Computed example of a mutant assay.
Amino acid sequence: MKAIIQRVTNAKVILNDEIPVSISNGICVLVGFHKEDTLKDLEYIVKKILSVRLFTDDNNKKWQNSVMDKQLEVLIISQYTIYNGWKGNTPDFHKTMDGEKSQEFYTKLIDLAREMYDPEKVKDGVFGIYRQLYLENDGPVTFQIDSPPSCREEK
């Protein structure tokens, strides 16, 4: 499993000229599922998303607080293309989890994040449909997190 985490001052999803979800300060997370991911991958990624220290503390010291420490919002968006490979100049998605299973994993990821944090602060970026994402990256700060292969070893 892979997550791209961006520290944002705001982010929103636009779907058919409407904004079904938006956040202010916090993180926008794009998640992609590998075809061999397990529930251990989900748990690992959710814990990381919520605990990575991307924010300054009250003494203005950088990299000291997580999104939970600061009680900020989290927008999670499924991103099928994260696990692409290449065949020449053409994207190849043979490593990506299929749609039905991806939707199941995405729903579990949202549910787990809401269980581990404030459910009101975890926003669902709408699964599997064409949409636009607008965000204002703060910093800019962007990190990639991959679940370790050891999560997939026990099936």
Rank of each mutant, 00 (worst) to 15 (best):
K95H: 14
V122E: 04
D17C: 10
N60Y: 10
G139F: 13
G32T: 04
N60K: 09
S66V: 11
G99V: 09
K108I: 00
G88E: 14
K121N: 09
P20S: 14
L15W: 02
K121C: 03
K61H: 01
N137S: 12
K101W: 04
P119Y: 09
A11M: 01
S78M: 05
V8E: 04
K121T: 01
L39R: 11
G88H: 10
K123Q: 12
E104M: 00
I4E: 09
L42M: 12
T38V: 09
K40C: 06
E43H: 06
S24L: 15
I27D: 13
C28T: 15
E104A: 01
Q103M: 12
L109W: 03
F93H: 14
I76A: 04
Y130E: 14
D69C: 05
L30M: 13
K123G: 04
P91T: 12
I27W: 07
L54P: 06
N65Q: 07
V31E: 06
R114E: 08
N59S: 04
S102D: 07
Q79Y: 09
V141Q: 07
K95F: 15
E100W: 02
Y134G: 03
A3M: 05
K70A: 01
L133K: 03
D57N: 09
E136I: 14
M97F: 14
L30F: 14
D92M: 14
R7A: 04
F105L: 00
K121F: 05
N16A: 13
P149C: 05
G139H: 05
Q103H: 06
R131K: 15
V126A: 02
D69W: 00
E153Y: 05
Q79W: 05
S150V: 05
K101D: 07
Q103N: 13
K121D: 03
P20R: 12
K70R: 14
E104D: 02
Q71Y: 12
Y44F: 15
V8N: 04
D17L: 09
D98Q: 13
V46L: 02
I129Q: 12
D118R: 08
K87I: 05
A11C: 05
D57E: 00
I77W: 06
K95I: 14
D57Q: 04
L30G: 02
D98N: 13
G88C: 10
K61L: 02
R152P: 08
I77M: 05
Y106L: 02
I45C: 06
L30C: 01
E18Q: 15
G99M: 14
K123P: 10
Q6C: 01
P91R: 11
D37E: 09
L75T: 07
K62D: 02
G125T: 11
S102K: 03
R131L: 06
A3V: 08
T96M: 13
S24D: 15
Y83I: 10
A113P: 00
Q71F: 13
E43G: 12
I14W: 08
I27A: 10
S147K: 00
L112C: 02
R131H: 10
D146F: 03
A3S: 08
V141S: 06
K155P: 01
E104I: 00
T56H: 03
N84H: 12
S22K: 15
P149K: 09
D37R: 08
E115L: 00
E154Q: 11
N25E: 15
L15M: 14
Y117W: 03
W86P: 04
Y83F: 11
N16S: 14
A11T: 02
N137Y: 07
E18A: 09
N60L: 11
K48Q: 06
K87Y: 03
I27T: 14
